[in-house]
């Protein structure tokens, strides 16, 4: 899999392909690494493109199994999960890639960190 493969989305969301290539990753550790490296304008751009589409994306995913096998479905889930992780950094943390006034997130170890969606 290359990041271009993550951009293969269901037709209705094909316009989000560049965002998917930029943000979608199968594991929490990979999504976190992208998040730590992102800056306020990155979060803002992701938010501005996704916020108006989130309802539709979730409505689509509600028709998909929890563990999608088909590539476009799985990529749609990956994009939603990438946004799930990134959105608070625009909406709550003023574009900061870290949670402000927090413990070093790199020292938090998720058991599931390398499990792929």
């Amino acid at each position: 899999m290359t990041t271009a493969d993550y951009a293969i989305l269901p037709e209705a969301f094909a316009d989000l392909a560049p965002l998917a290539a930029r943000w979608s990753r199968p594991t929490e550790n990979e999504r976190n690494a992208l998040r730590f490296a992102a800056r306020a304008p990155d979060f803002a751009a992701f938010h501005d493109a996704m916020a108006p589409r989130l309802d539709a994306l979730l409505a689509y995913l509600a028709q998909c199994p929890a563990e999608p096998v088909e590539t476009p479905q799985r990529n749609a889930l990956m994009l939603a999960c990438a946004y799930a992780e990134a959105a608070p950094h625009h909406e709550l943390y003023a574009g900061n890639s870290e949670v402000p006034f927090s413990f070093d997130a790199r020292r938090f170890v998720p058991d599931h960190g390398d499990e792929a969606l």
Binding site: E67, A84, A105
Partner: peptide
């Protein structure tokens, strides 16, 4: 039970993890 619920759980989990970081 579906992929939307899974994504939503990921979001809630991330928010709660962030609160734990605080």
């Amino acid at each position: 039970r579906n992929a939307a619920e899974r994504a939503a759980q990921m979001h809630v989990n991330a928010l709660h993890r962030n609160a734990w970081l605080e």
